[in-house]
């Protein structure tokens, strides 16, 4: 009986929404919902240096926010008011530090390179995590506007800067450059490029050498596309499930679509965000480590 009552009240509450939705649709020009519109970047503050476009877009705004937040986390948890009797805040900071050290840096980097490369790897871990995480918190940073009392405000939206290929490719390029610079610095040009080629009979060289060179560039692609596609697919799934209600114009679909969207949201926030940040930092450490000390 109770259950029937609950579903009945839900239905009653849903009905005004249908009428509201239909009036809005009648009032506005018909605009098809398309999830990919979320990834169109408009210049908010145009900055053009010749052919180089440095405009502030949605992704740039998210990146600036994430950088500030990363610095704040580092300062607040690991630099501010540290004592020998740690409180919760300091314990959290030490926990992050320990993960960065034992799980990421020591997995890949040889012990002589940890002092130099730990800061980079640890900040990558925290930065990628923060960028991914604020991508799942609804923030008033979107291109859609709505008005309350004559004031035009941006609607809340979720968007991750890492779901654009440019951002992840830049991060991967940094790792790519550092890898080869460190490899050459430690082993010399000849020694480093020689270490790419495994020990095989000379006759195999024409086959192996192009593959190994290609492999080095595939690392760049796999590192960037892994993060990019993970975040893109996560946001696309959530958007598509909620968008189904508007595409098929059926409010009752919300009963199915919203729980599914929530399930994917929780999956992304609890698992994917952390794992991808960890993987990105750990692979960076492994790549740099393997260039410093080649196995053969």
């Amino acid at each position: 009986m109770k259950r029937a009552l609950a579903s009945f009240t839900t239905l009653v509450l849903v009905f005004p929404a249908t009428t509201l939705a239909s009036t809005v649709e009648g009032g506005e020009e018909e605009e098809k919902f398309d999830p990919s519109h979320e990834w169109l970047l408009h210049d908010w503050i145009p900055i053009h240096l010749g052919p180089v476009n440095l405009s502030i877009t949605k992704a740039v705004a998210y990146l600036i926010l994430a950088s500030l937040l990363t610095m704040l986390i580092g300062w607040f948890l690991m630099r501010w008011k540290l004592g020998s009797d740690p409180d919760n805040r300091q314990t959290a900071g030490e926990w992050i530090y320990e993960i960065a050290q034992t799980q990421v840096a020591e997995q890949g980097l040889p012990s002589k390179a940890i002092a130099r490369w730990f800061p980079y790897v640890a900040s990558l871990l925290i930065f990628v995590f923060v960028v991914n995480m604020i991508g799942f918190i609804p923030l008033p940073l979107s291109d859609e506007k709505f008005t309350i009392g004559g004031v035009e405000l941006p609607t809340l939206g979720i968007y991750a800067a890492t779901s654009t290929l440019s951002v992840t490719l830049t991060l991967a390029l940094l790792t790519f450059v550092f890898t080869h610079v460190e490899g050459i610095r430690n082993n010399g040009v000849r020694g480093y490029f020689k270490s790419w080629i495994p020990e095989v009979p000379k006759a195999m060289y024409p086959l192996i050498v192009p593959l190994e060179i290609l492999g080095q560039f595939m690392r760049l692609i796999s590192l960037s596309v892994r993060l990019y596609a993970n975040m893109l697919a996560g946001h696309m799934l959530i958007l598509t499930f909620i968008g189904l209600i508007f595409v098929l114009e059926n409010v009752f679909l919300a009963a199915v679509a919203i729980p599914f969207a929530w399930a994917f949201y929780l999956f992304e926030v609890l698992i994917v965000v952390g794992i991808q940040a960890y993987i990105f930092a750990a692979l960076t450490a492994i790549y740099i480590g393997s260039a410093i000390e080649p196995e053969h």
């Binding site: 796999s222 596309v225 892994r226 596609a229 993970n230 697919a233 794992i275 991808q276 960890y278 993987i279 750990a282």
Partner: peptide
């Protein structure tokens, strides 16, 4: 385990891309 999971899972996304 998590490293292997992420490396394998990425294969889906190469297909998607």
């Amino acid at each position: 385990q998590w490293l292997g999971f992420a490396l394998t899972e990425a294969v889906v996304f190469y297909g998607l891309i």
